[in-house]
Amino acid sequence: MKTKTLLLFLFLPMLLLNAQGELKSVEGYSPNIGRMVYMLEDLKDRITEQVKDLDQSQTDFQYDAQANSIGALIMHLVSTESYYQVATLEGREWTAAELESVGVAGELNANVNSMLKGEPIGHYLDLWEEVRQKTLAALKTKDDAWFASNIEEGLNYHYIWYHVMEHSANHMGQIGTIKNRLPE
């Protein structure tokens, strides 16, 4: 009984904040894809909530020369989702224009961080929303059989989109760390 009570107290604040305690499949998608959409959207909403009010200096802030800025991390999430969207949902490579516009942050390094300065946080969030809307529209055209099918031996579409979701969760933690180090 003590374990159940302890778990309730540990998770109660999270449940109250989200007003949701279960993963649900989003209507309009096959069940497994709908659950993935729920997770992708939940993470995007939580990251957006963390960063939406940042000013320019906070968006570009790096706590040391090797650190990423929040703007660069959001752009990296845009780039990652766009890459997998184009590859898995459209079955093609990025065009030269896509590579220039969203592919710039496929890798994060000092050069990329220096390039991704001077844009307001809304710029990055708008790009993410644009990419996400394309992802959501394309996922509606797929079913769970496609989702479970292999791209190659040992790698299926479900895992690829799990990776996109996991990637967002990892960078959400980095964004929180950067926010904790923002100058007063």
Results as ranks from 00 to 15, higher is better:
residue 104 V to T: 15
residue 103 G to K: 02
residue 71 G to N: 06
residue 172 M to C: 09
residue 122 G to N: 08
residue 137 A to H: 05
residue 1 M to V: 04
residue 34 G to Q: 10
residue 161 W to D: 04
residue 34 G to V: 08
residue 61 F to C: 02
residue 8 L to H: 12
residue 175 I to C: 01
residue 103 G to Y: 00
residue 117 K to E: 12
residue 143 D to W: 00
residue 123 H to V: 00
residue 127 L to K: 12
residue 103 G to D: 05
residue 112 V to C: 11
residue 53 D to Q: 10
residue 15 L to C: 10
residue 130 E to M: 10
residue 31 P to M: 11
residue 126 D to G: 03
residue 66 Q to P: 00
residue 14 M to G: 02
residue 124 Y to W: 12
residue 35 R to N: 01
residue 33 I to M: 04
residue 57 S to N: 10
residue 40 L to N: 08
residue 51 V to E: 00
residue 118 G to S: 03
residue 98 E to C: 09
residue 89 L to K: 08
residue 50 Q to C: 07
residue 87 A to F: 13
residue 98 E to M: 11
residue 2 K to S: 11
residue 118 G to E: 05
residue 39 M to K: 13
residue 55 D to F: 01
residue 139 L to K: 03
residue 113 N to Q: 15
residue 81 E to C: 01
residue 17 L to Q: 08
residue 26 V to C: 05
residue 142 K to H: 03
residue 30 S to Y: 02
residue 164 V to K: 03
residue 125 L to H: 09
residue 134 K to Q: 13
residue 15 L to D: 09
residue 114 S to T: 15
residue 51 V to I: 12
residue 84 Y to G: 03
residue 144 D to R: 00
residue 166 E to M: 13
residue 55 D to S: 02
residue 136 L to D: 04
residue 171 H to F: 09
residue 100 E to H: 11
residue 44 K to N: 11
residue 144 D to M: 01
residue 178 I to Q: 12
residue 56 Q to N: 11
residue 1 M to I: 00
residue 19 A to D: 14
residue 27 E to C: 04
residue 167 H to F: 06
residue 84 Y to E: 04
residue 1 M to K: 08
residue 156 N to M: 04
residue 37 V to P: 01
residue 57 S to L: 06
residue 17 L to W: 03
residue 56 Q to A: 09
residue 97 A to M: 04
residue 4 K to C: 05
residue 157 Y to L: 02
residue 13 P to A: 04
residue 25 S to I: 02
residue 29 Y to K: 09
residue 71 G to D: 05
residue 55 D to H: 01
residue 163 H to G: 04
residue 115 M to E: 14
residue 55 D to V: 00
residue 128 W to T: 01
residue 123 H to N: 09
residue 107 E to D: 14
residue 114 S to G: 13
residue 167 H to P: 03
residue 41 E to C: 02
residue 136 L to H: 05
residue 93 E to W: 02
residue 3 T to Y: 11
residue 169 A to Q: 14
residue 176 G to D: 10
residue 127 L to N: 10
residue 42 D to T: 12
residue 166 E to V: 07
residue 2 K to Q: 13
residue 179 K to T: 11
residue 116 L to N: 10
residue 166 E to N: 14
